[in-house]
């Protein structure tokens, strides 16, 4: 049954623009239903701030179903907050208690510059995909979909990796600001499938090297897996590392043959 949480204190990172120094500001939430989602609690705060004539807190959000990957937020030192396998938009206030102080920070990484308040730019992810996170198949020339049977376990494993929503929690949670889980999830999805074999090694090389321009390195802490709202396993990182290693040798051989 619904209960009401009282007397919450929010410490929210406010920052006017990319170049500005930010600071924490403290807001009181005298009461909120535990049925409210975390973002609805911020909506309520924002509505109040507009009423008071001050600027509301800027934060990214969209589908609120945990699938679009737009929402972010470091909540009490955890990416997407305290609930495992849950994006911020599906986190509900029943995970908190009356009197709690909740600290909300934006994702922090060099590749995710802060735009305003809690909103960051995650375009670096797009750059990684543009570098090779696709299968080159122009529209129109595809053979019949059932031409290549794909064993169910392979299709399932590819799907597990493909579940990534591109939210950036892996980068945010990583002590090194690495994007290996994001990149490896895409590499794994495409490299496991028969359709992806033609570009398998070109793909992993291009993606890893683009990732390298923006992000830190993986030192196998495993924080990304814990923060991932889709609970993607760091096994995909091992697969990427293996494929990159193979790619380095195979691509070199392929080039020397030309």
């Amino acid at each position: 049954m619904t209960t009401t949480l009282t007397n919450l204190t929010l410490k929210i990172w406010r920052q006017d623009g990319p170049g500005d120094a930010g600071r924490f500001e403290t807001y009181q939430i005298p009461e909120i239903s535990d049925e409210a989602s975390f973002l609805e609690m911020l909506d309520v705060l924002n509505e109040r701030l507009i009423g008071e004539g001050t600027e509301p807190v800027t934060f990214d959000h969209d589908c609120r179903e945990g699938i679009c990957g737009t929402c972010s937020l470091m909540i009490d030192g955890q990416a997407h907050g305290p609930q495992r396998g849950t994006a911020t938009c599906q986190l509900h206030m029943r995970k908190f208690q009356s009197g709690d102080t909740i600290v909300i920070e934006p994702w922090r990484a060099s590749a995710f510059p802060i735009i305003k308040d809690l909103m960051v730019d995650r375009s670096a992810f797009d750059r990684i995909v543009e570098a090779g996170g696709y299968i080159s198949a122009d529209t129109g020339g595809a053979p019949d979909a059932n031409l290549i049977p794909i064993p169910k376990p392979v299709a399932d494993a590819a799907m597990d990796a493909a579940a990534c929503i591109g939210c950036g929690a892996c980068v945010a949670a990583c002590p090194n600001g690495a994007a290996n889980l994001f990149t490896a999830a895409k590499v794994t999805h495409l490299n496991l499938l028969p359709q992806g074999q033609a570009e398998r090694f070109k793909r992993v090389e291009a993606m890893v090297e683009t990732m390298d321009e923006y992000f830190g390195s993986c030192t196998n802490h495993g924080e990304c897996e814990a923060a991932c709202p889709k609970e993607i396993s760091i096994d995909v990182i091992a697969l990427m590392n293996a494929d990159y290693r193979k790619a380095k040798f195979k691509n070199r051989k392929a080039l020397s043959r030309i």
Partner: peptide, 22 residues
């Protein structure tokens, strides 16, 4: 029908049966 062909070629991991077909 062309959509399914195109999306499979793009690597969309549609659900499959044990025989490997869609």
């Amino acid at each position: 029908v062309d959509i399914i062909d195109q999306m499979v070629a793009q690597g969309v991991p549609f659900a499959r049966e044990y025989g490997g077909l869609l």
